Simulated assay, not measured.
Amino acid sequence: MHPQADILTITLNPAVDLATNVAEVIAGPKLRCAVPRFDPGGGGVNVARAVCKLDGSARALVAVGGAMGDRLLQLLAAENVPALPVAVSGETRQSFAVTDDSTGAQFRFSVPGELMTPTDAGHLLAAIAEQIPQDGFVVISGSVAPGLPIDFLSQIIAVTAPKGARVIIDTSGAALDRLIAHPATPVHLLRVDQNEAAQAATHPMTTIADSVAFAAELLARGVAKTVVMGRGAEGSVLVSQNHRFFSHPPHVKVRSKIGAGDAFVGAMTLALARGKAPCKALQWGVAAASATVSTKGTALCNLTHAEACFAKCQTDAL
């Protein structure tokens, strides 16, 4: 295993992911599905899984509750991903995906997590503060559970400061809107996808130049030191004060898009934790995402496939 800085991932709204397939998705009759696949899910959980699959190490701090929370921890243990469970009052949610064999289309369903209480929020923040790695990386990925304070991400960022940890964020919805609208300390890296960026910028991200311009605006406003913007199958843009890169993915057969963004964040974080240059870290992220979309259901990339994709990625300075 290569030397690396410590990585802690934080998942505030995890899920047990179920994936199956059926001959055809039609309304009305009972649809008899294939034997399902179960995986631990949620942004930070998948980031930690990806890091471990790529021969790195990461600890997954995860808010869990009820029997489904126990199931999630069992699934993490089966993959040898070190988990730091924080007990909360609500039951851990489920997500499920069904692939239509007749068309190859994938239907994805995500149910909301149960409402967290102020006590849950306090326990979570205290546990996070205790586990922050000195001079390591903290990845906050996925949605923020309902009931947590609107500024909960800012509270997490604040408790990382004394340890010198570098914060990487990949979130969406109101939490992302709040982070962009009210930046405090710039995070080390913010990843947004094309649709999230378009919504925040209130105009389409039609071209690579659009993505670069909006990323530069986020830097200037103090939101982040580095912004990575996904552009779907086209690739990803990285913008920092000194770097502007675009990485094109290789052509792969798309089987499932579940976890691709999380695999991207995991691979990129691992590369940075190993001291790789930003352009190489971006390339690793794109490679891992490409390897992930070519797997079935809720599976993620493996090292061999990610390495093969990495060799085929084209990364250019802008």
Rank of each mutant, 00 (worst) to 15 (best):
Q241E: 15
V228E: 04
T202I: 08
F214A: 04
E234Y: 11
P204Y: 03
Q199V: 12
G164N: 08
I180D: 06
D177G: 06
T226C: 05
V237E: 11
T206P: 01
T171V: 03
I168N: 00
A184H: 14
D210L: 05
A220L: 08
P146Y: 05
L190M: 02
L153D: 03
L153Y: 15
A197S: 12
R231N: 09
R191C: 11
V144C: 12
L189K: 00
P249V: 06
A165I: 05
M229Y: 07
L176I: 01
H203K: 08
H243Y: 14
L153R: 06
A209P: 01
P162F: 07
L179T: 04
L189I: 03
H188E: 12
Q194E: 11
Q241A: 15
A213E: 09
V212M: 02
S172T: 15
E196I: 09
A158L: 07
K225F: 12
V192M: 15
K225C: 12
K163V: 00
A181V: 06
S143T: 14
N242I: 14
R191F: 08
V237T: 15
V187E: 08
A165Y: 09
A165V: 02
E234I: 07
A220T: 14
S240N: 05
D170M: 13
I208M: 06
L153Q: 01
V187W: 01
R178A: 13
T160G: 09
R244D: 00
A200D: 13
G142N: 11
A224H: 01
T207N: 03
G164F: 05
D193P: 10
V144N: 12
L190K: 00
A220W: 01
Q194H: 13
Q241V: 15
L179N: 10
D151M: 11
H251V: 15
A198P: 00
P204V: 07
F246R: 15
N242W: 07
L238E: 02
T206F: 04
S211R: 05
G235T: 03
H248K: 14
I156N: 09
V212L: 05
G173A: 03
G235C: 08
A184C: 13
V237N: 05
L218R: 00
